[in-house]
């Protein structure tokens, strides 16, 4: 009788351990940002080109003079917000279609993207951006605004933050903060006297 009680207790403990292990496994396999991605509304996805099932159209915003100009491009259809964001930034790094100068330094690589549960898109770029950026205040402002506008026009997020080599940095080009999300900065229009 006493042995049976011990056996029941042991089986219960094992059962609880298995349940706990399973729960931890599921949490690790499905982190919160992925859960957030799946919840995102389908309406925020870029519009499929008429007649094209394989591609989606994205909008990119590149600095030109003292403003941004929009350029549409097609990318292979992807369904997750994170994958769209990755493709948008990769396309942005290629620069505008024309032959004009692009203030983004050459060799900048997209290391990763991440969408936080706070709705902020984190764009992790290589150190080349900070080290090789040689522009003035307007150049830096328009580059940050271009990244922001290109991101929010293609996925539904609240804000955009840039990381360099997986870390927050004080500034990219010495004029503006890069250690905080971009929305508050880039939604203020600059004014020429």
């Amino acid at each position: 009788m006493k042995d049976n009680r011990y056996l029941t207790a042991l089986i219960s403990i094992l059962f609880i351990l298995v349940l706990a292990g399973g729960y931890i496994y599921l949490i690790r396999m499905h982190p919160p940002e992925i859960a957030m991605e799946n919840k995102t509304e389908p309406s925020s996805q870029p519009v499929t080109k008429p007649g094209s099932e394989e591609h989606i159209s994205i909008k990119l915003f590149f600095p030109e003079g003292h403003k941004l100009v929009m350029e549409e491009r097609e990318i292979p259809r992807v369904f997750s917000q994170k994958k769209i964001l990755r493709e948008v930034i990769r396309e942005f790094l290629k620069g505008p279609a024309g032959t004009g100068p692009f203030i983004m330094p050459e060799g900048v690589i997209l290391l990763s993207v991440y969408i936080g549960s706070d709705g902020v898109a984190y764009i992790d770029l290589s150190e080349d951006l900070r080290r090789n950026f040689h522009g003035d205040a307007i150049d830096e402002y328009l580059l940050l605004k271009g990244i922001y506008e290109s991101t929010i026009s293609n996925i539904k997020i609240n804000d955009v933050k840039i990381l360099i080599d997986d870390k927050e940095v004080d500034t990219i080009g010495g004029h503006f903060y890069a250690n905080r999300p971009l929305k508050q900065l880039v939604t203020q229009e600059i004014k020429f006297d």
Binding site: I138, H175, F176, I190, F192, D193
Partner: peptide
């Protein structure tokens, strides 16, 4: 000489 109003944090 251009004069510009810009949200420079400094």
């Amino acid at each position: 000489v251009r004069i510009i109003s810009m949200p420079l944090p400094l």
